[in-house]
Design a protein around this nucleic acid. Sequence first.
RNA 1: GGGCGGUUAGCUCAGCGGGAGAGCGUUCGCCUUACACGCGAAGGGUCGGGGGUUCGAAUCCCUCACCGCCCACCA
Length: 880
Amino acid sequence: MEATTSRGGKAPELATRYDPADVEGRWAARWASEPFTADPHSGKQAFTIVIPPPNVTGALHLGHAFDNTIIDVLIRYKRMQGYEALFQPGTDHAGIATQVQVERQLKLEGTNRHELGREGFVERVWEWKRQYGGVIIGQLQRLGISAAWDRLRFTMDEGLSEAVRRQFVALYHQGKVYRAERIVNWDPASQTVLSDMEVDREERPAEIYELAYELAGGGALTIATVRPETIFADVAVAVHPEDERYAGLVGSQVRVPLTDRWVPVIADEAVERDFGTGALKITPAHDPTDFEIGARHGLERPSIIDEDAKLTGDNVPTGFRGLDRFEARTLVVAALAESGELVGRKEHMVPLGLSQRTGEPVEPLLSLQWFYDTDEAAATALGRVESGEVRFVPERYTKVDADWLRNLRHWCISRQLWWGHRIPAWYDAEGNVYVSPADDPLLDPTDDPRWSGIELRQDPDVFDTWFSSNLWPFSTLGWPDVADPYFRRFYPTDVLVTGYDIISFWVSRMQIAGEEFTGRPPFHTVVLHGLVLDAQGRKMSKSKGNGVDPLETIDRYGADALRFAVSRASTGGQDVRWDDRLVEMGRNFATKLWNAARLVMMQEGTPHAGPLAGSPNLADRWLLSRLQRAIRDVTASLEEYDLGAANRAAYEFVWSELCDWYLEAAKAPLRAGDGHALATARHALEVVLKLLHPMMPFVTSELYQALGHADQVALAAWPEVDDELDDPAAEAEFERMKAAVSAVRSLRAEAELPPSQAVQVWASGPGTAGLVATRDLFESLARAELSEGRPDGASLVGALPDVELRLPLAGQVDVAAYEKRQRNRLDKARAEAQRSAGKLANERFVSGAPDEVVAEERRRLAEAEALVERLERVLADLAA
RNA sequence: GGGCGGUUAGCUCAGCGGGAGAGCGUUCGCCUUACACGCGAAGGGUCGGGGGUUCGAAUCCCUCACCGCCCACCA
């Protein structure tokens, strides 16, 4: 690099263009090897956020970037404020997702999990986890998050597994988890049940069929159905009890089409009279509504669809047995048409349940599974939300969460998978359930002396992944060991940050588990961010292949740039249409900061930095005053979890005030060895590095170190506002000078004079003295030499409300264009003056509006009128 | 069927009761010894339509339209 010297100073070691790759790599490595640990024994107030655990073998996507950037901004901010900040990291075993991944791998190897056997398969998944489990951790570290890496947790760690087991045993003994045969969502592709939340509803075009059920006494009763293939499991036909059309038929028998089975006509209020024919076939084993109706009437529940979604059983005529459900539908419909029992069909949109994981239509099946009755804990959690004890940001999600907690159905927690926490329930030959005693949850029933001699078999199933992640805010902190210093100190956590799409999956379940096992809400604030959409506004997803790879973005622009983009886009929980231009903005901003620091550091040779307060220099006073405002704005925004606003406030101050005006104004004083200027510049730079550190930890760390600090900025104290430095008078004076400079620059552009050429400018009007008072600043920023009065000959005139600035016409100037522009300005000023005058003429405004608003309006009117007058004079001159 | 969000400059978005903003893009000048990932200047919007509240509305209320999301057992 070329050595740049200044006033006997050393050459700064900073390159012209900031190269994030090198700098970020070093700091990321440092934060990984010397993590920001949290001390449970310090005297500081704790501040805790747990990571939404990513899938252990997953790869970083933009959703993770949002979660973790937001969390890390808050954590770094609080840490600088003096809190004992704990960012608890970890990963999730992600039952289905991981199992599917490994099964896919096995398929490539020409084998499958059944060949390996359960034990072999599970060992294989662990191996997979050992191999790829570190990948996402490395990626999060590359993002620069300041997690306590020494406390990394995994949902299948010993301690967390014990927590899950304790949860199950405790709930079992309270009667809140129970085993029962219910209609469940069966995914024939992955061969497991799913919870309601893992099923997506999609409207699909289908047909609704009207079938005639022969009545015992002659005639027929016509029902409507979209699933004619399930008629073989029909046990009744239901009508509404008050439906006069069918009143006489209740209690009679009808024959199920294509069969010789006769079933009763029953009355139930769940039937909608207005839909279809008002008569409904009842198939308790394959429809949740029918299940309930069947239960109310004590009906049988024959099943005719198996786990492969094929028709099965004696009720199914041989011709249809073994057929796939959809294939069967076609053939059944054909047969019904043939037999004349199909009396109508029309197109109809049906909400189809699809497995979120496989996309396969879910089959409602009767199945013996474990369920969790969350009603009691959910009610408590709901109370915390309603009382405001748990707060949502943005607030509108309060209702979403509350609605969830109010309308929860019992949660199916068992899964027919091999990867996960094995259900700690055992059965004897008769199917009786054996569970560890409440006071010794780790004692296997097979080792329980009470049951010695009984042959017990453990449930082959595992728990739903969320049945362990619901414990995450405390299982990661040591629970069930309630004496663990981390649990005692850092629980309840403070804030939870995640996308609004998993309120139902995770947030509400953590709230429930928190109440259930700790009697407290697991966090007091939930910060929700929006979803990341692609350029077309579609949700990014792996299957659509429209995702943006954050690592590629980091490679191209740097992690700071990505974090800048994420924090700037985090406003009001709004979905964000991803746009690389934001990242580019972040990259440019990092470079801008870098260069501002270079400029300041070039002055290192300057003898002594003076004190901050009491600088005679207007620019210093202005900057320090503006800086206080920046500190206030950024701090207030972060307090409100509004990263977007914090980002904008910091960006605006750095670029438009510090760089565009102050540093330009300070160049001359700095070169001249002005100690006040140096102190101001350095101070502002350091404050800015601190304010930006949570959002852009890498550049700020590097620059802070380059400024000569031994400790990292991450450990520096958050800037505090110094009211003494507020200086409204300096702000006003500096603003006027800025306006004059801008006016000259405008004239210069108009006259097509190159910026390198100094110009002569004459000032006249009442504001002249004020401008002359800031002559040095004005002249250096405008590259002009200021004279009072008017020049001889033609000139271009720029009008400010209280000053006319004249630039002698040297070369060819397009006077017509210039004049037109001035006329436009005049029109605008006149309109402005007229509007103000109108307002002030309105008695109700003058008496109704607050005094300061009226005063401000008077000021504006005076300003506009002065400008009008001045412009009129300018245009008159031009005509002359 | 319920609930929520969005509609502001060509693009992506802030602003959410008192003078319409930013970045990118566009036009014109500039390698002005921090920065061309830059500097200066300029152009560009009846803030989706309609109604209302208010001295004053992009901002609050009502209504319509269009986009999007979430929830829901009318088969």
